[in-house]
């Protein structure tokens, strides 16, 4: 059960990290929190010749918020940092819900949000909410920097568009908008610890009591996070009823492509998508209304 042999580098500046990535590229793995990489190494699923640890680079774990630029998560921001930050609780409650759904207390104290994304597990709890929230990621290499919408990071299970010499440097989430609410709900067989069998992020912006814009993103029911664009667009102009949008989950349940595995059958996942989309929209609607500005929303205020 011991780990494969590798050379370890603990660079102390970002430039050193990038130089090591350029030098070792495909032979190297970057270690952020290590909670996925160490498990994969102990199971023999990966055997990198070089491990580049990021823990000694100052500043990579910073979490910054301001109302104009939004939220910025450095690549070493831990899941527990997100969970404990007052600005996240106040302005991004769905991000906190996704963080809370991630693994255990101890893992949340080690694992990073960026690592959860870069491992590209289809059931990564933190991806759907960040995508729904319009997050982008900055990828840095010695060749330069590029910024992508988060949804474009993922290529397939365990696969991203990151080049061998690229580092996901930070995640940026747009500032909160008026009369807008988001929510994340997930199901797993054994509550907190288990990997989510289905995860649903939903959000909407209300104007004059109607949906101005909606987002629905599903986790664990497709090879990559599934953005249910058509279903979300169909909500535009609708008025939230008592049960919000009772049939809003039916189309995404049909459109996604879940696998059946030890955690849930494909059919169960589809049925739960329908339920969780409805419930997530209910909670998002309640948050949008609670924002207080919904009933008197001025159109100018709801567009970014």
């Amino acid at each position: 059960m011991s780990l494969c042999k590798f050379a370890y580098h603990g660079p102390e500046t970002l430039d050193e990290v990038l130089a090591l990535l350029a030098e070792h590229g495909p032979a190297a793995r970057v270690m952020a929190g290590g909670t996925d990489l160490v498990v994969k190494m102990s199971r023999g699923q990966v055997a990198p010749a070089v491990v580049i640890g990021l823990k000694r680079v100052p500043g990579l774990g910073d979490l910054r918020f301001d109302p104009v630029h939004g939220l910025e998560l450095g690549c070493m921001t831990r899941v527990s940092d997100v969970l404990e930050h007052p600005a996240v609780a106040a302005h991004y409650p769905a991000l906190a819900e996704a963080a809370q759904a991630t693994a255990t207390v101890q893992i949340r104290n080690m694992a990073t949000i960026a690592g959860n994304l870069c491992n590209a597990s289809p059931c990564a709890d933190n991806a759907p909410t960040l995508i729904a929230r319009g997050a982008s990621v900055e990828l840095r290499s010695p060749r330069g920097s590029r910024t992508l919408p988060l949804a474009e990071l993922f290529r397939g299970p365990g696969q991203t568009v990151l080049a061998p010499d690229e580092l996901l440097l930070c995640i940026t989430v747009p500032p909160p908008r008026a009369a807008t609410g988001f929510a994340y709900l997930s199901l797993s067989q054994r509550s907190a610890v288990d990997v989510s069998a289905v995860g649903v992020a939903a959000g909407l912006t209300l104007a004059d009591g109607r949906v101005a814009e909606a987002r629905i993103v599903l986790g664990a029911v497709a090879p990559t996070p599934f953005v249910a664009t058509a279903a979300a667009d169909a909500l535009r102009g609708q008025r939230p009823a008592d049960e919000a949008f009772p049939a809003a989950g039916d189309a995404p349940a049909e459109a996604c492509s879940p696998l059946g595995d030890v955690r849930a059958s494909a059919g169960y996942r589809r049925k739960m998508v329908a339920v969780l989309v409805r419930r997530a929209l209910e909670r998002a609607t309640a948050r949008a209304l609670a924002d207080g500005r919904a009933r008197t929303a001025r159109p100018a205020e709801v567009t970014p």
Binding site: Y8, G10, T35, V38, T104, N109
Partner: peptide
């Protein structure tokens, strides 16, 4: 050895972590 059971829990700077998933050098 997978970070699931918590038997290896220690505190690192006062925070609980699973020592089976942490390199000693880190």
């Amino acid at each position: 050895g997978d970070g699931d059971c918590g038997a290896c829990t220690v505190l690192l700077d006062g925070r609980s972590v699973t020592s089976c998933l942490m390199l000693a050098v880190e």
